[in-house]
Design a protein around this nucleic acid. Sequence first.
DNA 1: GTCTATAACGTGATAGAC
DNA 2: GTCTATCACGTTATAGAC
Lengths: 192, 192
Amino acid sequence: MGRISDTREQIMDRAAQLLMSRGFNGFSYRDISSHLGVKNAAIHYHFPAKTDLALALVDEYRRILRKGTSEFMAYGGSALEQLEGFFIFTTKQCHVGRCICPFGAFSVDYNELPDDLRDATQSFMEESIKWLTRVMEVGRTEGEFSFTGDPRVKAVTVLAALQGARQMARIHGIELLNDVVAQVRQDLGLAT
Amino acid sequence: MGRISDTREQIMDRAAQLLMSRGFNGFSYRDISSHLGVKNAAIHYHFPAKTDLALALVDEYRRILRKGTSEFMAYGGSALEQLEGFFIFTTKQCHVGRCICPFGAFSVDYNELPDDLRDATQSFMEESIKWLTRVMEVGRTEGEFSFTGDPRVKAVTVLAALQGARQMARIHGIELLNDVVAQVRQDLGLAT
DNA sequence: GTCTATAACGTGATAGAC
DNA sequence: GTCTATCACGTTATAGAC
């Protein structure tokens, strides 16, 4: 079948959930194994060290982003559509499990992360920034968005606002994220 | 003298540093005691449980904010000055130790925090939002800022952008925070 | 591919001497 | 106010049987 191990997949699903809910240092192999009804050692078989698991998660996020990116680049989809899709993706993720963005989860523990994981996180973030920068560029050129200054800086600001909002929403309620998304749209000259 | 215990103060200083550098679950009493050259039990004397220490830290942040707030309210300082002061405070903190904002530190571990600590964090955040909302209101009325929409929503968005930027800056370099601050200023119609 | 068993260590916390 | 000593537990990780 060439099918990827089901257990491995389940481990990653649960780990992704836990990572976004508690941060990298906030969950253990036991949290995963007990949820799956297997033993701690079973996880170690698939991912010898916790770093390996985290690296696999970053890779997975990356694939998801690349998929969206390349489709956008290839077919020239509207920048507005891309941005709206990104907003929907973010708010949906936040509603299901009040989870924070993976960058946020890694950034708190960043100073203590192993080097390779730091590198992976960093280059994934760079990729995300580049993607949204392109969306901003195209959107402004096409007259869909209106903002002043460097598209890259604007993209970074939007990412930062969403990352921060997802965290604040956990403390202060989910409407906070909706509010921030609405304001970001307004700051881009979009209709509410 | 009525002077507060020096050790207690040193503990809180170090703990604040660690909290903003690693998050609530990212540091231990041992990290504090070894740095101060005392034993783990000495910390427990001043703060029986880790929660007590965290609550004290939140209270301290709160006092700092209240001081700035009340001065602003009482003497009617310019909203622009307040905002600039807030930007400077944020970037300075970030430069010294690449530390993230305390809300960010707590929010990642939020789901696992004890109830009283959650309450304290939440009401502190509400206070911060109220303060910046007032700054936004006054600033727009006085013609210092220019933005559309609800002042409170704008305030939340600015807070979220800064919180997110401080974290992203840790991963991607300190210029990222400067860039975001510049963009936030621009989005408020301020000169660069 | 999953198990049992275990190692080696760090954690928050407490009791009681000084 | 700080110490020594200790507890009970959770953590990542490994070795080896099935």
